[in-house]
Protein backbone atom coordinates (compact mmCIF):
# COMPACT_ATOMS: atom_id res chain seq x y z
CA UNK A 1 0.00 0.00 0.00
CA UNK A 2 1.66 3.17 -1.13
CA UNK A 3 1.14 6.74 -0.04
CA UNK A 4 -0.44 7.71 -3.33
CA UNK A 5 -3.17 5.14 -2.82
CA UNK A 6 -3.99 6.49 0.62
CA UNK A 7 -4.04 10.01 -0.78
CA UNK A 8 -6.37 8.80 -3.50
CA UNK A 9 -8.75 7.34 -0.91
CA UNK A 10 -8.70 10.46 1.19
CA UNK A 11 -9.37 12.64 -1.83
CA UNK A 12 -12.20 10.42 -2.94
CA UNK A 13 -13.75 10.37 0.53
CA UNK A 14 -13.54 14.13 0.79
CA UNK A 15 -15.04 14.45 -2.66
CA UNK A 16 -17.97 12.18 -1.78
CA UNK A 17 -18.64 14.05 1.46
CA UNK A 18 -18.50 17.44 -0.24
CA UNK A 19 -20.59 16.28 -3.15
CA UNK A 20 -23.24 14.92 -0.81
CA UNK A 21 -23.39 17.98 1.41
CA UNK A 22 -23.47 20.33 -1.56
CA UNK A 23 -26.00 18.01 -3.14
CA UNK A 24 -28.10 18.26 0.01
CA UNK A 25 -27.98 22.04 -0.04
CA UNK A 26 -28.99 22.33 -3.66
CA UNK A 27 -31.51 19.53 -3.42
CA UNK A 28 -33.46 21.63 -0.95
CA UNK A 29 -33.44 24.48 -3.43
CA UNK A 30 -34.31 22.14 -6.29
CA UNK A 31 -37.22 20.77 -4.32
CA UNK A 32 -38.54 24.15 -3.30
CA UNK A 33 -38.31 25.53 -6.81
CA UNK A 34 -39.88 22.45 -8.36
CA UNK A 35 -42.73 22.25 -5.85
CA UNK A 36 -43.33 25.94 -6.39
CA UNK A 37 -43.69 25.24 -10.09
CA UNK A 38 -46.14 22.43 -9.42
CA UNK A 39 -48.15 24.74 -7.24
CA UNK A 40 -48.17 27.71 -9.60
CA UNK A 41 -45.79 29.65 -7.40
CA UNK A 42 -42.32 31.00 -8.10
CA UNK A 43 -40.32 29.70 -5.18
CA UNK A 44 -37.25 31.24 -3.55
CA UNK A 45 -35.58 33.44 -6.16
CA UNK A 46 -34.31 36.39 -4.15
CA UNK A 47 -30.94 35.23 -2.85
CA UNK A 48 -28.57 35.26 -5.79
CA UNK A 49 -29.46 34.44 -9.39
CA UNK A 50 -32.38 31.95 -9.50
CA UNK A 51 -32.15 31.78 -5.72
CA UNK A 52 -28.86 29.92 -5.95
CA UNK A 53 -27.62 31.42 -2.70
CA UNK A 54 -30.74 30.41 -0.82
CA UNK A 55 -29.19 27.23 0.66
CA UNK A 56 -26.26 29.32 1.90
CA UNK A 57 -28.62 31.77 3.56
CA UNK A 58 -30.57 28.90 5.11
CA UNK A 59 -27.38 27.33 6.38
CA UNK A 60 -26.14 30.54 7.94
CA UNK A 61 -29.49 31.10 9.58
CA UNK A 62 -29.59 27.63 11.05
CA UNK A 63 -26.03 27.84 12.35
CA UNK A 64 -26.79 31.03 14.25
CA UNK A 65 -30.07 29.77 15.66
CA UNK A 66 -30.17 29.10 19.34
CA UNK A 67 -29.80 25.43 20.14
CA UNK A 68 -32.52 24.57 22.60
CA UNK A 69 -32.46 21.40 24.61
CA UNK A 70 -35.66 20.77 26.53
CA UNK A 71 -35.10 20.63 30.27
CA UNK A 72 -36.64 17.19 30.59
CA UNK A 73 -34.89 15.70 27.58
CA UNK A 74 -32.30 12.97 27.86
CA UNK A 75 -29.41 15.23 26.95
CA UNK A 76 -26.83 12.71 25.76
CA UNK A 77 -29.20 10.83 23.50
CA UNK A 78 -30.84 14.06 22.40
CA UNK A 79 -27.51 15.28 21.06
CA UNK A 80 -26.47 11.87 19.78
CA UNK A 81 -29.66 11.24 17.80
CA UNK A 82 -29.08 13.66 14.90
CA UNK A 83 -25.52 12.36 14.59
CA UNK A 84 -26.70 8.77 14.46
CA UNK A 85 -29.13 9.79 11.75
CA UNK A 86 -26.76 11.74 9.58
CA UNK A 87 -23.64 9.56 9.59
CA UNK A 88 -25.15 6.44 7.96
CA UNK A 89 -26.55 8.54 5.17
CA UNK A 90 -23.11 10.04 4.57
CA UNK A 91 -21.23 6.75 4.51
CA UNK A 92 -23.71 4.59 2.67
CA UNK A 93 -22.65 5.86 -0.75
CA UNK A 94 -19.04 4.74 -0.21
CA UNK A 95 -19.77 1.50 -2.04
CA UNK A 96 -21.67 3.05 -4.91
CA UNK A 97 -19.51 3.33 -8.03
CA UNK A 98 -19.77 6.55 -10.00
CA UNK A 99 -17.63 5.44 -12.90
CA UNK A 100 -15.44 2.63 -14.13
CA UNK A 101 -11.65 2.67 -13.95
CA UNK A 102 -10.20 5.66 -15.73
CA UNK A 103 -6.60 6.52 -16.54
CA UNK A 104 -5.36 9.79 -15.20
CA UNK A 105 -1.71 10.79 -15.44
CA UNK A 106 -0.63 7.26 -16.22
CA UNK A 107 -2.39 5.94 -13.15
CA UNK A 108 -5.47 3.70 -13.18
CA UNK A 109 -8.01 5.30 -10.89
CA UNK A 110 -11.20 3.42 -10.12
CA UNK A 111 -14.08 5.87 -9.77
CA UNK A 112 -15.38 4.31 -6.60
CA UNK A 113 -14.21 4.46 -3.03
CA UNK A 114 -14.63 0.81 -2.15
CA UNK A 115 -15.57 -2.23 -4.15
CA UNK A 116 -16.34 -4.64 -1.38
CA UNK A 117 -17.83 -8.03 -2.07
CA UNK A 118 -20.69 -7.55 0.42
CA UNK A 119 -21.62 -4.09 -0.80
CA UNK A 120 -25.36 -4.69 -0.78
CA UNK A 121 -25.30 -6.12 2.71
CA UNK A 122 -23.35 -3.05 3.76
CA UNK A 123 -26.02 -0.81 2.24
CA UNK A 124 -28.80 -2.68 4.03
CA UNK A 125 -26.96 -2.60 7.34
CA UNK A 126 -26.00 1.06 7.21
CA UNK A 127 -29.31 2.47 6.04
CA UNK A 128 -31.12 0.64 8.82
CA UNK A 129 -29.04 2.37 11.48
CA UNK A 130 -30.48 5.80 10.81
CA UNK A 131 -33.88 4.64 11.99
CA UNK A 132 -32.35 4.38 15.45
CA UNK A 133 -31.52 8.05 15.24
CA UNK A 134 -35.11 8.96 14.50
CA UNK A 135 -36.54 6.68 17.16
CA UNK A 136 -34.07 7.90 19.78
CA UNK A 137 -34.69 11.51 18.81
CA UNK A 138 -38.39 10.97 19.31
CA UNK A 139 -37.92 9.23 22.62
CA UNK A 140 -35.26 11.49 24.10
CA UNK A 141 -37.16 14.71 23.36
CA UNK A 142 -39.66 13.75 26.05
CA UNK A 143 -42.41 15.16 23.90
CA UNK A 144 -45.53 13.20 23.09
CA UNK A 145 -45.66 14.22 19.45
CA UNK A 146 -41.99 13.35 19.04
CA UNK A 147 -42.51 9.98 20.72
CA UNK A 148 -45.35 9.17 18.38
CA UNK A 149 -43.15 10.15 15.46
CA UNK A 150 -40.35 7.93 16.70
CA UNK A 151 -42.71 5.00 17.20
CA UNK A 152 -44.12 5.47 13.75
CA UNK A 153 -40.68 5.29 12.20
CA UNK A 154 -40.02 1.92 13.83
CA UNK A 155 -43.39 0.62 12.71
CA UNK A 156 -42.62 1.91 9.26
CA UNK A 157 -39.17 0.36 9.11
CA UNK A 158 -40.26 -3.17 9.95
CA UNK A 159 -42.91 -3.00 7.27
CA UNK A 160 -40.81 -2.03 4.28
CA UNK A 161 -37.28 -3.25 5.00
CA UNK A 162 -37.99 -6.90 4.21
CA UNK A 163 -39.51 -6.07 0.86
CA UNK A 164 -36.56 -3.80 0.17
CA UNK A 165 -34.13 -6.56 1.07
CA UNK A 166 -35.80 -8.96 -1.34
CA UNK A 167 -35.63 -6.37 -4.08
CA UNK A 168 -31.90 -6.13 -3.46
CA UNK A 169 -31.66 -9.88 -3.97
CA UNK A 170 -32.98 -9.64 -7.53
CA UNK A 171 -29.98 -7.80 -9.05
CA UNK A 172 -27.73 -10.08 -7.01
CA UNK A 173 -29.34 -13.13 -8.60
CA UNK A 174 -29.17 -11.58 -12.04
CA UNK A 175 -25.53 -10.59 -11.78
CA UNK A 176 -24.27 -13.30 -9.46
CA UNK A 177 -22.41 -10.81 -7.30
CA UNK A 178 -23.02 -8.65 -4.22
CA UNK A 179 -20.53 -6.04 -5.39
CA UNK A 180 -22.17 -2.98 -6.85
CA UNK A 181 -19.39 -2.55 -9.41
CA UNK A 182 -20.05 -6.04 -10.76
CA UNK A 183 -23.78 -5.41 -10.80
CA UNK A 184 -23.31 -2.28 -12.90
CA UNK A 185 -20.84 -3.92 -15.28
CA UNK A 186 -23.27 -6.82 -15.83
CA UNK A 187 -25.88 -4.30 -17.01
CA UNK A 188 -23.86 -3.35 -20.08
CA UNK A 189 -26.25 -5.31 -22.21
CA UNK A 190 -29.61 -4.54 -20.69
CA UNK A 191 -30.55 -2.59 -17.59
CA UNK A 192 -32.14 -4.72 -14.91
CA UNK A 193 -35.22 -2.53 -14.83
CA UNK A 194 -36.15 -4.09 -18.17
CA UNK A 195 -35.37 -7.60 -16.98
CA UNK A 196 -37.22 -7.34 -13.70
CA UNK A 197 -39.50 -4.25 -13.69
CA UNK A 198 -41.60 -5.63 -10.84
CA UNK A 199 -38.75 -5.63 -8.38
CA UNK A 200 -37.69 -2.19 -9.59
CA UNK A 201 -41.13 -0.78 -8.87
CA UNK A 202 -41.27 -2.36 -5.41
CA UNK A 203 -37.81 -1.03 -4.64
CA UNK A 204 -38.87 2.43 -5.79
CA UNK A 205 -41.83 2.33 -3.39
CA UNK A 206 -39.81 1.09 -0.44
CA UNK A 207 -37.22 3.73 -1.28
CA UNK A 208 -39.78 6.45 -0.51
CA UNK A 209 -40.51 4.77 2.79
CA UNK A 210 -36.81 4.37 3.56
CA UNK A 211 -36.18 8.10 3.37
CA UNK A 212 -39.44 9.07 5.10
CA UNK A 213 -40.62 11.01 2.13
CA UNK A 214 -44.18 11.72 1.11
CA UNK A 215 -46.44 9.79 0.95
CA UNK A 216 -44.67 7.87 3.70
CA UNK A 217 -43.54 10.83 5.80
CA UNK A 218 -45.51 9.73 8.84
CA UNK A 219 -42.69 10.16 11.38
CA UNK A 220 -42.69 13.87 10.77
CA UNK A 221 -46.28 14.27 9.57
CA UNK A 222 -46.57 18.00 9.98
CA UNK A 223 -50.35 18.10 9.93
CA UNK A 224 -50.71 15.42 12.57
CA UNK A 225 -47.65 15.48 14.81
CA UNK A 226 -46.60 19.11 14.27
CA UNK A 227 -43.09 18.03 13.29
CA UNK A 228 -42.91 14.51 14.63
CA UNK A 229 -39.58 13.30 15.89
CA UNK A 230 -37.79 16.62 15.38
CA UNK A 231 -40.41 18.76 17.11
CA UNK A 232 -37.99 19.76 19.85
CA UNK A 233 -34.93 20.26 17.70
CA UNK A 234 -33.66 23.64 16.61
CA UNK A 235 -30.66 25.17 14.96
CA UNK A 236 -27.95 22.94 13.57
CA UNK A 237 -29.29 19.76 15.14
CA UNK A 238 -32.53 20.31 13.30
CA UNK A 239 -30.54 20.94 10.14
CA UNK A 240 -28.76 17.63 10.64
CA UNK A 241 -32.06 15.75 10.45
CA UNK A 242 -32.87 17.50 7.23
CA UNK A 243 -29.40 16.85 5.96
CA UNK A 244 -29.84 13.16 6.73
CA UNK A 245 -33.17 13.03 4.95
CA UNK A 246 -31.97 14.77 1.82
CA UNK A 247 -28.63 12.99 1.63
CA UNK A 248 -30.47 9.72 2.02
CA UNK A 249 -32.66 10.75 -0.88
CA UNK A 250 -29.55 11.18 -2.97
CA UNK A 251 -28.04 7.96 -1.65
CA UNK A 252 -31.07 5.76 -2.32
CA UNK A 253 -31.42 7.33 -5.75
CA UNK A 254 -27.80 6.41 -6.44
CA UNK A 255 -28.39 2.88 -5.20
CA UNK A 256 -31.55 2.50 -7.24
CA UNK A 257 -29.80 3.82 -10.33
CA UNK A 258 -26.94 1.41 -9.71
CA UNK A 259 -29.11 -1.64 -9.18
CA UNK A 260 -31.69 -1.17 -11.89
CA UNK A 261 -30.74 1.69 -14.17
CA UNK A 262 -27.23 0.68 -15.10
CA UNK A 263 -25.49 3.06 -12.71
CA UNK A 264 -22.84 5.07 -14.52
CA UNK A 265 -23.51 3.35 -17.85
CA UNK A 266 -25.06 5.13 -20.77
CA UNK A 267 -27.69 3.24 -22.69
CA UNK A 268 -25.84 1.35 -25.47
CA UNK A 269 -22.58 2.05 -23.66
CA UNK A 270 -20.76 -0.65 -25.65
CA UNK A 271 -21.76 0.91 -28.96
CA UNK A 272 -20.75 4.39 -27.82
CA UNK A 273 -17.34 3.21 -26.69
CA UNK A 274 -16.58 1.85 -30.15
CA UNK A 275 -17.18 5.25 -31.77
CA UNK A 276 -13.97 6.71 -33.15
CA UNK A 277 -13.70 10.15 -31.54
CA UNK A 278 -15.98 10.19 -28.50
CA UNK A 279 -15.42 6.53 -27.67
CA UNK A 280 -12.38 7.05 -25.41
CA UNK A 281 -14.08 9.86 -23.45
CA UNK A 282 -17.16 7.81 -22.60
CA UNK A 283 -15.76 6.16 -19.42
CA UNK A 284 -14.95 9.60 -18.06
CA UNK A 285 -18.62 10.55 -18.36
CA UNK A 286 -19.60 7.96 -15.74
CA UNK A 287 -20.22 10.40 -12.86
CA UNK A 288 -22.31 12.69 -15.07
CA UNK A 289 -24.43 9.84 -16.33
CA UNK A 290 -25.07 8.73 -12.76
CA UNK A 291 -25.85 12.33 -11.77
CA UNK A 292 -28.40 12.63 -14.56
CA UNK A 293 -30.12 9.44 -13.44
CA UNK A 294 -30.11 10.59 -9.82
CA UNK A 295 -31.65 13.93 -10.77
CA UNK A 296 -34.44 12.18 -12.63
CA UNK A 297 -35.13 10.00 -9.59
CA UNK A 298 -35.01 13.00 -7.26
CA UNK A 299 -37.49 14.76 -9.47
CA UNK A 300 -39.74 11.78 -8.88
CA UNK A 301 -39.47 12.34 -5.12
CA UNK A 302 -40.49 15.95 -5.50
CA UNK A 303 -43.29 15.15 -7.90
CA UNK A 304 -44.79 12.54 -5.61
CA UNK A 305 -44.52 14.85 -2.63
CA UNK A 306 -46.43 17.63 -4.31
CA UNK A 307 -49.16 15.32 -5.58
CA UNK A 308 -50.04 12.58 -3.16
CA UNK A 309 -51.71 12.72 0.24
CA UNK A 310 -50.04 10.95 3.13
CA UNK A 311 -50.81 7.32 3.79
CA UNK A 312 -51.78 6.30 7.31
CA UNK A 313 -49.11 4.35 9.13
CA UNK A 314 -51.26 1.28 9.81
CA UNK A 315 -52.09 1.20 6.11
CA UNK A 316 -48.40 1.34 5.27
CA UNK A 317 -47.78 -1.64 7.53
CA UNK A 318 -50.62 -3.53 5.90
CA UNK A 319 -49.33 -2.49 2.49
CA UNK A 320 -45.79 -3.51 3.34
CA UNK A 321 -46.67 -6.90 4.78
CA UNK A 322 -49.62 -7.93 2.68
CA UNK A 323 -48.71 -6.57 -0.73
CA UNK A 324 -45.07 -5.58 -1.05
CA UNK A 325 -43.64 -8.50 0.91
CA UNK A 326 -45.36 -11.30 -1.08
CA UNK A 327 -44.76 -9.51 -4.36
CA UNK A 328 -41.08 -9.03 -3.69
CA UNK A 329 -40.81 -12.66 -2.60
CA UNK A 330 -42.50 -13.67 -5.81
CA UNK A 331 -40.16 -11.59 -7.91
CA UNK A 332 -37.15 -13.16 -6.20
CA UNK A 333 -38.58 -16.61 -6.86
CA UNK A 334 -39.32 -15.88 -10.50
CA UNK A 335 -35.89 -14.36 -11.01
CA UNK A 336 -34.19 -17.31 -9.37
CA UNK A 337 -36.07 -19.86 -11.46
CA UNK A 338 -35.46 -17.99 -14.69
CA UNK A 339 -31.75 -17.54 -13.91
CA UNK A 340 -31.49 -21.28 -13.19
CA UNK A 341 -33.27 -22.21 -16.40
CA UNK A 342 -31.10 -19.91 -18.50
CA UNK A 343 -27.97 -21.38 -17.01
Amino acid sequence: MDGALILEWVLKSVFILLALTAGFAYLTLFERRMIARFQTRIGPNRAGPFGLLQPVADGIKLIFKEELIPASADKVIFILAPIITVIPSLIVTAVVPWGSVIRLGGRAIPLYLADINVALLYVMAVTSISVYGITLAGWSSNNKYATLGGLRSTAQMISYEIAMGFCFVVPVLLSGSLSLVDIVEKQRGLWYIFLQPGAAIILAITMYAEVNRAPFDMPEAEQELTAGYHSEYSGMKFALFFMAEYIKMIAVSMIFATLFLGGYLLPFQGWFEKLPVIGPIIPYLGPFVLLAKVIVLLFGFVWVRSTLPRIRYDRLMAFGWKILFPLSLLSVLVTAVVVLLVQ
Binding site: I35, P215, A221, P309
Partner: peptide, 16 residues
Protein backbone atom coordinates in the same frame (compact mmCIF):
# COMPACT_ATOMS: atom_id res chain seq x y z
CA UNK B 1 -58.57 19.73 4.26
CA UNK B 2 -56.44 18.51 1.38
CA UNK B 3 -53.45 19.97 3.14
CA UNK B 4 -54.45 18.14 6.32
CA UNK B 5 -54.03 14.92 4.40
CA UNK B 6 -50.72 16.29 3.07
CA UNK B 7 -51.98 16.78 -0.48
CA UNK B 8 -50.09 20.02 -0.82
CA UNK B 9 -50.72 21.27 -4.28
CA UNK B 10 -54.48 21.37 -4.18
CA UNK B 11 -54.22 24.01 -1.46
CA UNK B 12 -52.49 26.39 -3.81
CA UNK B 13 -54.83 25.61 -6.69
CA UNK B 14 -57.80 26.42 -4.45
CA UNK B 15 -56.24 29.60 -3.13
CA UNK B 16 -55.65 30.79 -6.66
Amino acid sequence: SGLDLAAMSIFLYCMR
